[in-house]
């Protein structure tokens, strides 16, 4: 119940300020821009959206997701409102869950607003809408993973800029880790075992299978456990900071 109260407050705070609008507009511009330019949407004639549209999402999220999540705890610590939250009769988990879901909702709205592209491919061809849905699920999970990382980092610092830079660095690493061109170059320098270990950290393997419309339990578990670990870490850091 208190998680819902926190969720509502956080969500209205995103939409009461320009933050959410700015990020959603930039996301839409970038995702559509990339789809129609480098994605060659009009020439490829691929209605699945896999390479033309979803392919760009991890690249955009690695930069923009931390911008949504950076204030979650950093701002709370800078302004001292964490002292109010800490003395209200609520568990730290309701605050973590409420805040996390609010940030995730902003991205849900952003992703939902890309609906014209789905209408377009349905008008132009006969795509497998189930696969498109799986693509959206994959995108959203990647985004949620990046948000969870940002939340963990934001619990560590009261400075939003530090939080943004560190989170972006981690997310960029996770995107590059599993990207083919990067692993190929890495393979020339280090042993295959190391490459495999690095690839496992990356988001591509799990994102790609969902993107192809292949719903594998292991991918959902991978994203899910990553998020849970980050949220557990957030709770541990917040408790440790108060001790």
């Amino acid at each position: 119940m208190t998680a819902l109260t926190i969720y509502k407050r956080e969500l209205s705070s995103y939409f009461a300020q320009p933050t959410a609008y700015a990020i959603i507009v930039i996301f839409l511009a970038l995702s559509m821009g990339l789809t129609f330019s480098f994605g060659n949407f009009m020439r490829v004639g691929d209605a699945s959206l896999e390479w033309t549209f979803f392919f760009w999402h991890p690249w955009i999220f690695m930069l923009l997701a931390p911008a949504v999540g950076m204030k979650l705890w950093a701002d709370e610590q800078r302004t001292g409102t964490i002292e109010l939250l800490g003395t209200f009769p609520l568990s730290i988990w309701s605050a973590i869950i409420g805040k996390y879901l609010a940030a995730a909702t902003v991205w849900l709205v952003a992703l939902a607003l890309t609906f014209p592209i789905v209408l377009t491919v349905n008008y132009l061809g006969t795509p497998d809408n189930g696969a498109i849905f799986a693509g959206y699920l994959g995108s959203f999970l990647v985004c949620c993973t990046f948000l969870a990382i940002t939340m963990l980092v934001s619990a560590c610092t009261r400075d939003q800029v530090v939080c943004l830079i560190v989170s972006v660095a981690i997310c960029v690493t996770m995107v590059l880790c599993g990207y083919d061109d990067f692993t190929r170059e890495l393979g020339k320098a280090v042993s295959p075992a190391v490459v495999e270990a690095v690839t496992a950290l990356g988001v591509w393997e799990h994102f790609r299978s969902l993107n192809r419309g292949l719903f594998r339990l292991q991918d959902v578990v991978w994203f899910g456990s990553f998020i849970v670990v980050c949220l557990l870490g957030t709770s541990a850091i917040l408790s440790a900071k108060r001790a």
Binding site: M1, T2, T5, I6, R9, S12, S13, A16, Q17, T79, G80, T81, I82, E83, L84, T87, F88, P89, L90
Partner: peptide, 29 residues
């Protein structure tokens, strides 16, 4: 059982006074 005013009187600056108080009341159940 406690009402607490922290030293720096922290507030959520993006809210209105009444919005903030309603939020606090909701958190208090």
């Amino acid at each position: 059982k406690i009402g607490y005013l922290p030293e720096s009187a922290p507030l959520y600056h993006d809210m209105t006074v009444i919005g903030f108080l309603k939020f606090c009341a909701s958190v208090r159940g």
